[in-house]
Design a protein around this nucleic acid. Structure first.
Lengths: 340, 340
DNA sequence: TTGTACGCGTTATCAA
DNA sequence: TTGATAACGCGTACAA
């Protein structure tokens, strides 16, 4: 028997009266009974059952944290950028009385099922792998959603991004200011013409080169996945061209750290033989030596914006900006130094 | 109106018949209607509502992933050990049809509330900060639970741990084998006599010293928190005693990396001036230079054991071992080298 | 083969 | 002030 019923029986009142006390409708109950009922609830450690409440009010306070994973066995939490982001998000949600249901998804089709299964109040999509089906996701699920780093041209989408173009631009400009002219670009660029995170950074890179009257070489592009292992591969490739390439811009810190390793494996001395700039400013960027110069994005702020956007939708408040874009900046450390 | 009712109406049957089809009780429904109903369900993208189902069957398929956080603003996901662990756990739970609700908790009292609020099917406690109230947690919550790294003497507790004593022992022995005799220990040791992760490692450290006829010095102990920043502090302290201390065992990789940094800030050349052994074998232990020699614990296996123990409890299967202890091993890299 | 009735814990409405 | 009743979506037991 449920605690509510026990209390009602013991206090000699109806279940409804107990609920009135629980919900603070004190005006509707006599003071004497209030005290007794509160005492009994306390004694029995009553905690409202949210699965029942959810059913009644059609709101669960569950927010889905959706992370696409390609391969079934890849542990996306090893990515420090994602973990940090999830940590901040969980924290903010908790403070606002929501519950974070973290979920990696392999098949995009599973998303709708998940959201409906728990009748979630909202969802945050951490990685921008859904631009091509954004329309479908929006159509199938009528609930507040926020996409991170999306470049979808769907006008109905809410998203929080960073100024990827500027990131690529200032990083390249920074390397140019150090005297570098033969600058490689490492990152999984998408199809030509498609707007996406890496392509925007790539565009910034090319524009900065052009502005400095530096010719762009297709062979300077290493279109590898932004993970440590592929960084090593890229680093090995790049260091085969000693003297030809003097600097690299990588689209993720972990990749940049991998590039360092790969170059070192080929006998490079860092940062002398190769200047490297990363992207994200994860905590591990100070673990490596030389410490990584990188384009910093403010992860806590990104999370805040996402939650803010989500809450505004949930509470039917106006959203001044549907797609805020956060600023980025260069964090100068030791991995990029003047040429020569 | 719910999809179920729509389908029932359109198919001209009762709601019950629709449920029979959904639940595969085909024997109870005529083939013609089955096809029609399945088609309608498909069209309308029917997904069972777990909040309602949970209420009816008193099982939610939600597993709580509980992480204690001391300070309100500390982002525990920055800890690579925890993130990796959570990643594996989410993955395993998903494959078994469960949902991971990740939750940081500040006040231990919130735990019971959380578990009851969602009527969770089980819970995993990631950090062993609850040994002193384990009895209370067990008493207040009658659901399958698994504690990681617990040294509670409560016989009712299920836990998965690693051989911390052996870890401290083999790490110290390893340093001794390299010729070191003045070996410091860095980690937040608990009260004397209390069994806990760090104290066990500390015990292993002391026993290994004794076995090698090396005197233990109280002043060689740096009882700092196992985080990067405190590692730096420890590294600075240790490097003030050049020649006096030649090696350190740290109880966490991030701390070991911090120690490197602190020592370097004081002019140390690594690993020449100081040999360092870490603990955990997180991914970032290869990001630093020199690469970290460390005591490895098998995080995926730890997660697997925990889930296995949890599932056995949920399914009322016998559990051969209530408190499995996983083995550890030394991973030799570059941060610890022979003396001189 | 199909349908009815009731319960799960909670909220909302309305009557007493 | 208090309480009865219906509803939320689903499962179980039992009838027709």
């Amino acid at each position: 028997m449920s605690i509510i019923k026990e209390v009602a029986a013991e206090a000699g009142v109806s279940v409804m009266t107990v609920y009135n006390v629980i919900n603070g409708n004190y005006s509707k109950v006599s003071e004497k009974k209030i005290k007794l009922i509160l005492k009994l609830l306390e004694e029995k450690n009553y905690v409202p059952n949210l699965t029942a409440k959810s059913l009644a009010i059609k709101s669960t306070k569950i927010i889905g944290i959706i992370v696409p994973v390609g391969d079934d066995d890849y542990n996306f939490f090893k990515d420090p950028y994602l973990s940090e982001l999830i940590g901040v998000i969980e924290h903010l949600l908790r403070k606002k009385g929501y519950y974070a249901m973290v979920r990696s998804v392999i098949h995009a089709a599973d998303i709708s099922t998940l959201l409906k299964t728990w009748n979630m109040d909202g969802a945050i999509f951490l990685l921008p792998y859904y631009d091509h089906i954004a329309h479908q996701i929006l159509a199938q699920n009528n609930l507040p959603m926020v996409f991170l780093d999306s470049y979808s041209d769907n006008p109905d989408i809410f998203s929080v991004g960073i100024d990827d173009y500027k990131g690529g631009y200032i990083a390249t400009k920074y390397l140019v200011s150090l005297g570098h002219t033969r600058i490689a670009f490492a990152g999984s660029i998408g199809e030509d013409g498609v707007k996406c995170v890496v392509n925007q950074r790539f565009k910034g890179y090319k524009d900065a080169l052009r502005e400095a009257n530096i010719e762009f070489h297709e062979s300077f592009v290493y279109p590898f996945a932004p993970v440590y292992d592929m960084g090593i591969v890229a680093g090995r490739e790049i260091s085969k061209r000693k003297g030809e390439i003097t600097a690299v811009l990588a689209t993720a810190d972990v990749m940049a750290i991998g590039i360092m390793e790969g170059a070192r494996l080929n006998g490079y001395l860092l940062p002398n033989d190769l200047s490297i700039v990363g992207f994200d400013n994860i905590e591990a960027s100070i673990f490596c030596s030389p410490k990584l110069t990188t384009v910093s994005q403010n992860i806590p702020k990104k999370a805040e914006c996402a939650i803010d956007l989500l809450m505004k939708q949930i509470n039917d408040e106006p959203t001044p900006e549907k797609r805020p874009v956060l600023d980025v900046e260069i964090i100068e450390r030791q991995s990029a130094i003047p040429l020569r």
